[in-house]
Amino acid sequence: MLTSLYVEGQTWFHRAPVRAKLIALLALSIALFATNSPLLLLPAFLLCGGLYFSLGLTLRQAFARVGVVFFTILVLAVVNLFLIPVPDVLALVLRLMALVLFAAAVTATTTIGAFMDEVTVLLRPLERLGLVRAADVSLALGLVLRFVPDIFARYQAIREAHRARGVPIRPLTIIGPLIILTLKDADTIAAAIDARGFRRQ
C-alpha cells in the first residue's frame, strides 16, 4: 500500500551520496531564486529535466509524478500573465519547474533507508540538546508503516457496516468511529513496546 517513490536503477545519480544530493537541492533552490534571467534558468530547467527523465522511469510514470505540481504551476502562470510582465512569468515557471524536477529526481533515486540515515544525522544536534531521540523518530515511522494497512482495513469495515445497514457513507459518520477505534489501541501498543524494552526506559 505504501510503496516508496524510489525507482530501481544504476545511474550516476542513484550512486551519488544522499547528502550531496540534498545539499545540491538546497544550493539549487538558493541559486535559482537569486537569478531572474531566462538565459540562466532555461539551461537549468533543461538540465534538471534531462536528469529526471534519464533515471529509468517510464515517460508515463515520470509525468504522473510531477503532473499535478506542473498543472498548479501552469494555472498560476496563466493568472500571472495578467498581473506581471511576460518575461518574469517565464522566469518564474522555468525556475519552479527546474526545482520540482530536481527534487523529483532526488526522491526517485534515494531509498527510505538512505533518507533515514540522513535524518538521523540531522537530528543529532537536537538529540544532544535532549529534545528528541533519533531512535524514537525511526520507531514512530515504523509504527506508521505498520498501522496504515490496519487502519485502512478498519475504514473498509466501517464502510461495509454502513452499506449493510443502508446508511449513506458520509465522512462524518466514518471519521469518528475510525479515530476512536484506532486511538483506543494506543495503550495496548505502548504496553507492547515497553514490555519489550524497545525504548530502554
Partner: peptide, 26 residues
C-alpha cells in the same frame, strides 16, 4: 512526522502524491 513521510518519498498525500517535488512546488 507526516511531513517527514512526504519528504522521504512515500506517496502519503491524497491522490498518491509525495516526495520532495511536492514540497518544492507552489
Amino acid at each position: 512526522l507526516f511531513v517527514l513521510l512526504v519528504a522521504i518519498g512515500l506517496p502519503v498525500l491524497s491522490g498518491g502524491r509525495g516526495g520532495l517535488a511536492i514540497l518544492a512546488g507552489p
